[in-house]
Design a protein around this nucleic acid. Sequence first.
DNA 1: CGAGTGGTTGACCACAATCAAGACCCGTGG
DNA 2: CCACGGGTCTTGATTGTGGTCAACCACTCG
Lengths: 250, 250
Amino acid sequence: MPRLLNHTVSVEPTAEAAACTAVACRNCGLYQLGRLPGREEADPTLLQRIACSRRQLRKGEYLYRLDEPVRAVYAIRYGSLKSYVLSGDGRLQITGFHIVGEPLGLNDLATGRHTSEAQILEPTSLCEVPLDHLEKLSVEVPSIRSQMLIILSREVQHYQELMLMLGKKNAEERLATFLLGLSSRFEQHGFSPLRFNLSMSRGDIGTYLGIAEETTCRLFSRLQEEGLIRAHRRSVEIRDLDRLRQLALR
Amino acid sequence: MPRLLNHTVSVEPTAEAAACTAVACRNCGLYQLGRLPGREEADPTLLQRIACSRRQLRKGEYLYRLDEPVRAVYAIRYGSLKSYVLSGDGRLQITGFHIVGEPLGLNDLATGRHTSEAQILEPTSLCEVPLDHLEKLSVEVPSIRSQMLIILSREVQHYQELMLMLGKKNAEERLATFLLGLSSRFEQHGFSPLRFNLSMSRGDIGTYLGIAEETTCRLFSRLQEEGLIRAHRRSVEIRDLDRLRQLALR
DNA sequence: CGAGTGGTTGACCACAATCAAGACCCGTGG
DNA sequence: CCACGGGTCTTGATTGTGGTCAACCACTCG
């Protein structure tokens, strides 16, 4: 397995994922699009037809930028990225971090132009499905549109949680919620929920949580002092899941 | 025209709307579902088939509550309501106010259960389309699903703006943004963008903007002192659109 | 006319922002 | 191999915005 990833990497691709030669597979966020009504498993043939091409991107590159026409939807094979919206005077609010196995890019279908930007956080491999291809396919296979609705509706739920965070939680509760969220997403994709590496900086985390970078740092320290976590730079270990949950789930 | 509405009402139904006997019509947020590919105007026959029943609700009633199964999607004929999400310990974050002509209820399709609640703010009339009915129809008319995607994607854009607000704007900028947003929505639906009545309390506005009720009050006073608006209780007049925009669009 | 809800204003305080300095870690090049 | 530089992270000191508590007012409805 080529060592693509440096220490800042959130998760190394598992042997399984690295060995997977399919453009879209179980690990990939578009898997769901391949589901037929009433079936849990995706239809492999359909999946083959959906998946088009891979794309490899380096840290700092943009997947898409503001006002660009929406050309495709994506799924993350490995790696991670952040997406964010911008205010008139350039302040930015990160609206989500996307990690391995998650779909991306359905947000801006209404306008046909991106209202947000997506930037790569670490070496990342994506599966890319051009919109016109998806369009054609979904005429023939209507279930694809249903699945798109479901994915988008999940996105909405994520945003609702984030709004609750930004509007109602204090800084400590926000960080706890953030860490638990990551934890369970890693678990969903077969990684350890208690030990993981962050691919984003303290500044990014702050920009996501609506707090300052310095505050984020202080909170990492505080949670560590209180024994809830152990953290050094990008590596995080959750030591007291229960108390962390207590903090977050308020 | 029956006087259904008291002084707290955001907008009186226009003569046209009141006279409209159709369940779904131009004024109604489901109008868009009746659009066929490439057409601006909705297909009247299709619209007739989509629209099912009306429903009349009073202030304080719930359209749906947390964890209830999603039964239908709605469009507002007249009136308004708020929807909100709840934290573990009962704090609530209002995620949107819905006014005349806007669609509602597509958010929770993924889970099939409501992750938010919707409560009526003033006497309100809705057009209701049961999900199974919509389901059946959209097998036959696939464009319906596309339109649902577009509606949901608009919703996402609204949330992105709200997150920018909650995460990055100060209290004054939030209120300015809020007032301008309402203003342009009223305008879209044929009402005056410079004079309107709010259907929500100061507390609700605060809960939406992530600030305290008292702060909301103070800001109304401040914007009035500075000559940007005139406000008395639920009635608002925008007096200096440009400066208000300057504040909001940062 | 009185009660109750919603709105307003004031005083005080706390949480988190900002400013500032320094430590740590990495990649790079000598 | 080590020295350097830049980015990231950390901690401290100070400030300020907005939260909280409290009292009072205004308007509506019964």
